[in-house]
């Protein structure tokens, strides 16, 4: 990996350079929190945010996306929808880039690369930035506090300066043109080590570190804990709406008012949506909150691991804020911790 150092004051120039050819999406302050928005002015960017309310997945997998237009009378496809905006996702934390990497595993790889997702992903540059954890962050438990790939630039804050990891030619050219990147000194490297250690020491110690989470998800699959946890689910799907890795969707047809033409769309769906696992005829394979909440946690903490060798949770903590019934992976970790203590007694 190529590393350079720039001064913090050079960042607005870089953002403006991106703006010449791309829509720049970055964290901005909104009410009591932060959101990712398209920005026109580098001064609007709030880089010191802890966590945004929602992730950037909507720019790769929109909540409501037309796939194709059809003629309902002839049953034929008329046209395909494409809305691809070259975009820079600016100021993403490591967890969110790790989340994009997981979405890539589902939508870019395998037997069925998703043409819609791929078109957007190809047209997207990712610029990451280091961060300090908030109270609900537990990315370090799954190793998502660092990111090895999936970005074009990654900025490590080393006090008034950034150590920049450069991984794409496109981004390198823009960085060169807008800033004055220089070789890192020993001092920079030492400060980088300090910054990393400060981050690692700042995680909330009340969130238990549990080994073998995936194994435990299987072992305690029938535990009454899931009745309790799922029993308080509000069935609102806020968890998956804010989750940077939840990608489930529904495919649905919508007729134009004329009844002759229409559009086939995909819209975000969620396994915590009560009717999600219902089949024709009405049988629901996960009829209660217990099964739905457990399934969601299981896919996050075990299922994806079994098929892709990594968690589908990146520990961003957004669901901890979004779920009003306090259902989140931290609760699952606390349950496992309690079980561990019971065994000792």
């Amino acid at each position: 990996m190529l590393y350079r150092v720039i001064d913090a004051q050079e960042l607005p120039a870089l953002v403006r350079a991106f703006m010449e050819s791309y829509e720049v999406v970055a964290p901005v302050k909104r009410g009591s929190g932060y959101v990712f928005r398209a920005v026109d002015d580098p001064a609007d960017i709030a880089l010191s945010y802890t966590m945004t309310d929602s992730s950037v997945k909507k720019y790769l997998l929109p909540p409501d996306e037309p796939l194709m237009r059809f003629d309902a009378r002839t049953n034929l496809v008329e046209d395909f929808h494409e809305e691809v905006t070259p975009r820079v996702l600016f100021g993403l934390h490591a967890c969110d880039i790790n989340a994009i990497n997981r979405l890539d595993l589902v939508f870019r790889d395998g037997a069925y690369p998703d043409p819609y997702y791929c078109a957007r992903r190809e047209a997207t540059l990712v610029v990451g930035i280091s961060c300090m954890p908030g109270d609900h962050c537990f990315c370090q438990l799954w190793g998502s506090d660092e990111v090895q790939f999936g970005y074009d630039l990654f900025f490590q804050d080393i006090g008034g300066k950034y150590l920049v990891s450069i991984s794409s030619v496109t981004a390198a050219n823009i960085l060169e043109s807008a800033c004055n990147p220089r070789e890192a000194t020993d001092e920079d490297r030492i400060e980088f080590r300090h910054a990393t250690r400060r981050r690692q020491a700042a995680f909330n110690p009340d969130i238990p570190r549990i080994e073998d989470v995936s194994m435990l998800m299987d072992a305690f699959h029938k535990d009454p804990f899931w009745d309790e946890l799922g029993g308080r689910c509000l069935s609102c799907t806020a968890c998956s709406a804010v989750c940077p890795t939840c990608y489930c969707f529904d495919i649905t047809d919508e007729l134009d008012p004329d009844g002759a033409h229409g559009v086939r769309k995909r819209v975000w769906d969620s396994c915590t949506n009560p009717s999600f696992a219902t089949v024709a005829g009405g049988h629901n394979f996960r009829p209660t909150g217990r099964e739905r909440v457990r399934h969601r946690m299981y896919h996050k903490l075990n299922g994806f691991m079994a098929t892709h060798d990594r968690m589908l949770c990146v520990g961003c903590g957004r669901c901890v804020d979004a779920c009003k019934a306090n259902i989140n992976p931290i609760e699952v970790l606390k349950f496992f911790e309690k079980k561990g203590l019971e065994d000792v007694e």
């Binding site: 609102c236 806020a238 949506n273």
Partner: peptide, 15 residues
């Protein structure tokens, strides 16, 4: 839809 509404608020990123 039989789900409740908070998820839709999150999709819209309402406070």
């Amino acid at each position: 839809a039989d789900r409740t509404m908070c998820g839709d608020c999150k999709r819209r990123e309402n406070e």
